[in-house]
Design a protein around this nucleic acid. Structure first.
Ligand SMILES: NC(=O)c1ccc[n+]([C@@H]2O[C@H](COP(=O)([O-])OP(=O)(O)OC[C@H]3O[C@@H](n4cnc5c(N)ncnc54)[C@H](O)[C@@H]3O)[C@@H](O)[C@H]2O)c1
Ligand SMILES: NC(=O)c1ccc[n+]([C@@H]2O[C@H](COP(=O)([O-])OP(=O)(O)OC[C@H]3O[C@@H](n4cnc5c(N)ncnc54)[C@H](O)[C@@H]3O)[C@@H](O)[C@H]2O)c1
Lengths: 250, 250
DNA sequence: CCGACTTTGTGCATGCGTTCACAAGCGGTA
DNA sequence: TACCGCTTGTGAACGCATGCACAAAGTCGG
């Protein structure tokens, strides 16, 4: 905050702020929502919609309109007051901020149930995430093409990842193998990991990990059911009995 | 505070009024972490570990020790100062708070790539989430057993869900079908939905939805790569030029 | 029985994210 | 051109979550 003079005065200088500054300041939660807005906007563009207001877009994205505008303000001021946003302009700016102007090559490790589903999934390439490498230890799988790509042996992971410039590694191995696979990905230079194995991965600071943990998702849902059932019980009965008289038991 | 020696103990009991208050106040973020602690603790229990300190547990769960203690304090005071926590006691109390003292029957809708993986996955039943119903529209799939359960037709969803007391519905259909499937689940009385389709679902207030959106996860990773690459560029090049030629100030 | 040591549980400050409310700005209209 | 109605962009207030730091409360050795 050193450059601009004037204190809290209105930003009458629209071109001044640098994108890099902004990108650094975007809250993680907002980044996740930007990705959702992008998808909604792409859908609108496909249907020929060219302009959209914050109200419309926020409803389609399932968020509060004020939050949406705040989120968009993190990436710049690309709307027109009194009118709304140009869909294509917004799409291109969100893509730029999210780093989607270039492709990010993806490697899937562990071609079992889940790995097959991921490798066969057609939704990634179109969004800039081509799956370019598959790995497994199972000898029967090596060389077999899945979703058009032959499975490589896990021992070749470094060479293959470097060669195909893999930037995102997806871990779909059984839990015991996950940390070891992660370590190998990291030493192959992969800095982004999406982990499906229910394990807490240890990684160096320069590596970004996101986990998808279905059991945790279900348990969160379970918590809400329990809380709701419990509230109902406390209103109607007031003791430890469930709604339909069923005692909650281990 | 309210914890007395000798009362309750390790047996999971129905929520008492004090716990009910607590459950209502637990932050969502803490609930998600409790589920992780539970998994780590279960693993420890399986390996014969009987006691654990907040420091150990927090490292295994990949969080700050203070945060872990705060999270545990939301469910009560079950530790022993100077010693730590009894693994089994903690497990049973977390399970109770998360509503895992009873099974939650799961239905999967859309038995394609992903639906097959989910239906075949062995990790859910053991954690209290038995998959008891599968649905699809594809005539070729109806009646075919996947993971031991025959696929039902989507039109039978209400009857089957009621009969098997489904409490969690998993949507793994193509995006265009998701909202319609969701509506059907809701009218079948399902109050918890886990959605894999990249669509924003509209549901009544009494229904809880969680989404798993892989494209969004990857885009968040992409954002971090871009941010990092950008920082690196500004350090190594140091010419103060941004991505689009804008001047970046130090 | 005491005192030293260990670890929990939590009050408090801090920072982040969400929400509100409204001035600023733009297009349309007369 | 001047006015009007609409929508954006954002300062400011609020609320929630995180992390710190320490008193309270327990164990253990002597
Ligand atoms: N299938 C699901 O729906 C689902 C749901 C939630 C979580 N998960 C998790 O996702 C992971 C994969 O699940 P799955 O059902 O596909 O399991 P799976 O057993 O079907 O497949 C695992 C694959 O990983 C391979 N593998 C094992 N060790 C390896 C190693 N060291 N290097 C490379 N490959 C290795 C195996 O050969 C196998 O092909 C598991 O951790 C599971 O807990 C799966
Ligand atoms: N496969 C993946 O790895 C992956 C990754 C991310 C997201 N997704 C999302 O998950 C969903 C499923 O993906 P997939 O690869 O399994 O797709 P898929 O096409 O393989 O399977 C979809 C299944 O849903 C069934 N279906 C279609 N309409 C239905 C309806 N109205 N009622 C019931 N069933 C219906 C189809 O018959 C088919 O069996 C999609 O929304 C996809 O975007 C999948």
């Amino acid at each position: 905050m050193a450059s601009q003079r004037g204190e809290g005065e209105t930003t009458a200088t629209p071109l001044e702020p640098a994108d890099r500054e902004r990108a650094r300041a975007i809250p993680e939660a907002a980044v996740a929502r930007l990705a959702v807005y992008l998808r909604v906007l792409s859908g609108m563009a496909d249907q020929g919609v060219t302009a959209v207001s914050s109200e419309e877009l926020s409803q389609a994205a399932g968020v509060n309109a004020a939050k949406l505008r705040k989120d968009l303000s993190y990436i710049g001021s690309y709307g027109t007051r009194g009118v709304g946003y140009d869909v294509e302009v917004l799409v291109s700016h969100i893509e730029r901020i999210l780093g989607l102007t270039r492709n990010h090559s993806v490697a899937v490790v562990g071609i079992g149930n889940l790995g097959h589903a991921l490798a066969n999934y057609g939704g990634f390439p179109g969004r800039g995430f081509p799956v370019t490498a598959l790995f497994d230890v199972d000898a029967d799988l090596i060389g077999v093409p899945v979703g058009g790509i032959p499975v490589s042996h896990i021992d070749d992971i470094t060479a293959v990842c470097l060669e195909r410039e893999v930037s995102i590694g997806v871990i779909a191995t059984p839990p015991p193998a996950a940390q070891s696979v992660c370590d190998r990905l990291v030493s192959a230079g992969v800095q982004c990991i999406l982990n499906f194995a229910p394990v807490v991965l240890q990684v160096p600071d320069n590596v970004e990990v996101r986990k998808v943990d279905l059991a945790v998702e279900m348990q969160i849902l379970s918590f809400h059911v329990a809380r709701r059932a419990d509230e109902a019980a406390s209103v109607s009965v007031g003791n430890g009995l469930g709604v339909d008289g069923m005692v909650i038991r281990p």
